[in-house]
Design a protein around this nucleic acid. Structure first.
Lengths: 189, 189
DNA sequence: AAGACAGTATACCGTTCGGTATACTTGGCT
DNA sequence: AGCCAAGTATACCGAACGGTATACTGTCTT
């Protein structure tokens, strides 16, 4: 049922990821999907509605599982490894989605992509800040830095994920360990 | 002489940074600048020409000085501090430019902003890879990782610079030390 | 059998897009 | 004075933009 709806979502994601949200027209989407405009407007109401639904449906399950992975177990390294592992795995399995998500995160604050993707990195930051806040109770030297830690850990994960997706890094097997280790102990050691 | 030219550059940067390259029309630029279309086309030839010249003129001096700061002196920490210091300083003094530069870096590969800004992060990566390559001669455990190191150091600097520009981080005084220390020794210690 | 409703297509709307042909003004040079 | 070239404005171009009014088709319910 409603095969056209999922076709539109899939095609538009591919186009948005490759050429950018603003550069892609409605006409181009419906042509690529083999349908017509009213069909798209029937399901999504507007171009920005399509964008919102696309991000919402793609990332709600991701965020739920990320919150599970980030539940602090008393071992910071283990928890961070779970977070990095799931994030990198998700990025590897959905390269177009991950690329597009990155563009929304850094897009201009007034742009539609940023506004539509805001909930994703707000929730990501909330999850990680909570993790580092709890961890700081066990590790005094981490106190008062949970915001910076959350941001820089996310930045590091995203950086390595982008390298992997771009094929600029070959061995992905121990990428998780590499990311977490670098975050915890730096490049020395 | 040619005050209009620099007005166009300044206004268009502000608009691109706030709303995104594709979302901003030529008409809007010339209206904001108080001039007309032919004037803009006289100086820049096209919208993409404006973008190219804008990035070229803004970042050529930045890259030159960055290369100076990144000259390896035998002390990795010192050199990285010089790089981070100059980068954060430049970002702080040109917040709009820095924001827009970040969007070009993560923009879709086929988009005009990415293509126009490609030379910047290619040169940044080249500079830092060279630095880490030379440093690896003194520090054996860094060998074979210069690509990942360059990427993740840049990612870390950009992450903190964005936090600072967004006002999510207050104390900027020891930000440089914080970035370099985290990169070298991790969050522990 | 009849109606309701979701889904889809044809054809069109006004607006804005990037870009330009043409002409006027201005300054400096000969 | 006469000319040239840079710089700027008026007015316009065809194409593409996001979006929609209307009508047709099927399927499912009653």
């Amino acid at each position: 049922m409603s095969e056209n709806r999922s076709t539109i979502l899939q095609i538009s994601l591919e186009l948005f990821a490759r050429r950018g949200y603003e550069a892609v027209g409605i006409q181009e989407i419906v042509d690529s999907a083999g349908i017509t405009k009213p069909t798209l407007y029937h399901y999504f109401g507007s171009k920005s509605g399509l964008l919102e639904i696309l991000l919402k449906e793609s990332f709600t399950p991701f965020l739920t599982r990320l919150a599970d992975a980030a539940r602090y177990s008393g071992d910071v390294t283990n928890t961070l490894q779970a977070v990095a592992s799931y994030s990198l795995q998700f990025a590897g399995q959905n390269p177009s989605l991950f690329r597009f998500y990155l563009t929304t995160q850094v897009a201009p604050l007034d742009s539609e992509p940023y506004q539509a993707g805001k909930f994703i990195h707000l929730e990501q930051q909330r999850i990680l800040q909570e993790l580092f806040l709890k961890a700081a109770q066990d590790h005094g030297n981490m106190k008062g830095r949970h915001i910076a830690y959350a941001a820089s850990f996310l930045g590091l994960v995203n950086t390595y994920a982008l390298l992997a997706v771009n094929g600029e890094i070959t061995s992905v097997d121990n990428l998780v360990n590499q990311v977490v280790h670098q975050f915890m102990h730096g490049i020395f050691s």
